[in-house]
Design a binder for these strands. Structure first.
Lengths: 335, 335
DNA sequence: CTGTTAGCGCGTTCAA
DNA sequence: TTGAACGCGCTAACAG
């Protein structure tokens, strides 16, 4: 295992007794190469343990064979399954994944642009930048797909779950259990998914629901902390923005001596892997995270090839009734 | 938002009426530049919305300003906090993060090498490749730090948690509660952390524990499914490789009508964010995931600068007693 | 089918 | 202090 200078295409060419162009050709799988010449080249590459320099390839060809993934928060486990599915697609095509989070709202566009010189395009997960930002990106004609966000009037391929219908179905479920006074534990106000879900909850007035919104932000901690304020509205059910917030809420309710669902029902959204193992198992919406990731990659790939992409329909998310919801308790003051 | 050709350093130079070299200098913060010239350049960069081409910078300077993060499984939320902390450090230094998982054991080295042509170095999270692989990497003299793995005889900086001591402390806790017959729900056999934790559990024989190992793999599902076999050994406590497996086990126990900890105690490891919100809240080990990520980045950075790195001591992980453990039930057959 | 060569965009000598 | 010119490693014409 001796130390060695980086071996370049030049070294391979010399070792094989051919030109660098030929080496480049066998790498790209060009069929216009004499087969035993190609064999010699491959042998030399093996022998020298040649690894093409990605930066050089990118600079010369304009293709980087990597995709930029931009998301709000790396620590949020919700994105894991999406990223995973995307990664599977990407690696199948020998693509690498450059992951960036932005944290500060307002940094999102900057971060995206920054990474643009090292990738062939972008996957924007749960983008929250304003429409102008999206338009800016769209105008750059760089393959970019929006995941978990739908924005009419922006010329970008997008893939998202039908949050509205799913949430409405969940509300229907609650209504049928006799719930009326409910609190929506909100996600980030600037998140499209939050707006859709809240829109559905409001729509559910026609089902008899009487919803109030309480701010949180889709983390366990936020769900935990927002619960006290939620209870001040004397609800029979808590509709959390997502599973994490729901889990946090349940933990707080337990602390307060309130039983779920006997005293109060709680619903989640997403069906993270823990949801069904929680106590009680969470009534929630199964968002097709893997499908989302796969589809996002597929659209990205199509976009790379310059194909004109037809907008796929919103992905359906299934409602699943587990044990965290039950009949509304009859209206008497809580414990 | 008109469409436009990529603006290069040339454009900036022209707009500012200077040479490209000068522009390059102000970018690198060279102090040998006339200040109003520098000002003009900065103005031109602003005006043209100039973004240096990363690939070109990488090619010219030999630095890619990005780090490769290699891990076993993107969907495992355990890594989120580590990656997050690493990312914070990296982005502070304008570094990007190229993330890759390997899935198939045996692909790890290949994946690592593959990414090496586009990054300045590697962060190997919970690496499971064999020593020869590590040595191969070490011989390449590329900045590489091992996270969650310690391997004497490999010349690579490494940072890890003191799994052994922490697990021993946890065992001490169980022993003091009168537990004797315990089952260790194992993680991946090739994971260093698993080996360390199991080693500690075995060591705990001197504390009176009588441990049996049952295969699992550190996921909720695996913990859930391994529980039945674990019970066949009639333990009073389950020591799970990590929190996820513990949570899965508890879910299964509940299904079986066994109460935690009244009928059987369960411990986790890591203290993922859900652990304290679970029912019952998990007795576990708080691994300093953020510190791990920060330290990993710091060591990587030092390694980049060519500094000789002194091996830091293992990070201490605190034991935390919550409600999933209690006195061993007196020995009578289970329900 | 193969080799020569001109860039890709930028960092970095080396003179001036 | 500044600019001209070379080279980083590779791809993609263009010749032959």
């Amino acid at each position: 295992m001796k130390e060695r200078r980086r071996v370049t295409i030049r070294d391979v060419a010399d070792a094989a007794g051919v030109s660098v162009a030929t080496v480049s050709r066998v790498m790209s799988g060009s069929h216009t190469v004499n087969s035993d010449m190609a064999e010699r080249v491959r042998w030399a590459m093996q022998e020298l343990e040649y690894r093409p320099n990605g930066a050089a390839q990118g600079l010369a060809s304009g293709m980087h064979r990597s995709v930029g993934v931009v998301l709000p928060d790396l620590s949020n486990p919700y994105f894991n399954d999406i990223i995973k599915a995307t990664y599977v697609g990407a690696s199948r095509e020998q693509y690498r994944m450059l992951v960036t989070e932005w944290r500060e709202p307002g940094e999102e566009l900057g971060v995206s642009l920054d990474v643009l010189s090292r990738v062939d395009g972008l996957l924007l997960l749960s983008a929250r930048m304003d429409i102008d930002g999206l338009r800016d990106l769209a105008a750059r004609k760089v393959p970019t797909v929006l995941v978990n966000r739908v924005e009419l009037g922006v010329d970008l391929p997008m893939v998202a779950v039908d949050n509205f219908s799913a949430m409405l179905e969940l509300c229907q479920h609650l209504a049928s259990l006799g719930h009326r006074r409910v609190v929506y534990l909100a996600g980030s106000p600037s998140a499209w998914q939050n707006r859709e879900r809240w829109r559905a909850v409001q729509q559910a007035r026609i089902l008899g629901l009487d919803p109030v919104m309480v701010a949180a932000d889709g983390t366990i901690e936020a769900g935990f902390e927002a619960t006290d304020e939620a209870l001040s509205h004397d609800p029979t059910a808590l509709i959390a923005f997502n599973d994490l917030a729901a889990l946090g809420a349940i933990a707080r309710l337990r602390e307060l001596g309130l039983r779920t669902p006997a005293d109060i029902s709680v619903t989640g959204f997403d069906d993270v892997s823990l949801a069904r193992f929680a106590d009680p198992p969470l009534t929630t919406i199964v968002s097709p995270k893997a499908a989302l990731g796969e589809l996002a990659w597929a659209m990205f790939e199509a976009s790379l090839r310059g194909e004109r992409i037809e907008q796929p329909p919103l992905l359906r998310a299934a409602f699943v009734h587990r044990a965290s919801t039950g009949p509304a308790r009859t209206s008497r003051s809580r414990v």
